[in-house]
């Protein structure tokens, strides 16, 4: 499966390349900054939920899904960083006073900021070196922050919308399903320990 990682990388970068290409051709519409900002945020959240879907997907027989989890997670972080950078640089024009006021006064921006910060330690400790250094148990504890980040991301999206909640609610539904699978799993594995995998609660 040597093609797996390169193919995934291509798919994961496609939306960003598309946004870049649209920007270069002046095809981001009348408010290009809002357009790019929204699309980068959309894909950050999309890949974040995809990261959470890797382990259930593997169990459903999609071999290789788990091998891609780190890559997808890192891409989610990358899109989130681009999203924030664009907000900082172009939406707010590096006016740090305004950015501070925005983050402290507006719950939807506060939540977005916290979500990004939650992803930082996960991205840093994503290497196998860090798994060894922390020990797999502590590493897994730490990486459960992804659930908080996913909830934060969905709330950030819902709060931003004026009236049409369709898209954020699809994300909320997908997240609820993924969390339900997790909870169901942990309950059933507590019931019958014999079935628990050596990987633990991945």
């Amino acid at each position: 499966m040597r093609w797996l990682q390169p193919t995934a990388t291509l798919i994961l970068s496609a939306p960003a390349l598309r946004i870049g290409a649209d920007a270069l051709r002046g095809q981001l519409g009348a408010d290009p900054i809002a357009n790019a900002l929204h699309r980068l945020g959309f894909w950050a959240l999309f890949w974040l939920l995809t990261t959470l879907a890797c382990s259930p997907a593997q169990r459903l027989g999609l071999r290789g899904a788990l091998k891609l989890r780190r890559l997808v997670g890192l891409f989610s972080f990358g899109y989130a960083v681009l999203h924030f950078t664009l907000y900082l640089a172009l939406d707010q024009g590096f006016d740090l006073g305004d950015v501070y006021a925005d983050i402290s006064k507006r719950p939807f921006i506060t939540v977005g900021m916290v979500t990004l910060l939650l992803l930082v330690p996960l991205a840093i400790t994503s290497t196998s070196g860090w798994v060894r250094r922390l020990g797999s148990r502590r590493w897994q504890r730490l990486h459960q922050l992804i659930y908080l980040a996913a909830i934060g991301g969905v709330v950030h999206f819902i709060w931003r919308v004026k009236a049409d909640l369709r898209e954020p609610l699809i994300f909320a539904g997908a997240l609820a399903l993924l969390l339900f699978v997790r909870i169901f799993d942990s309950i059933s594995s507590r019931g019958g320990r014999a079935r628990s995998s050596p990987r633990g609660n991945s």
Binding site: A34, Q92, G93, D102, W159
Partner: peptide, 19 residues
């Protein structure tokens, strides 16, 4: 008077980059 979720102090004129 800000909107509860965002500031109304500035605006982006469509066609311009800075607010």
């Amino acid at each position: 008077v800000d909107h509860p979720r965002w500031s109304q102090a500035k605006e982006r004129r469509i066609g311009e980059l800075t607010k």
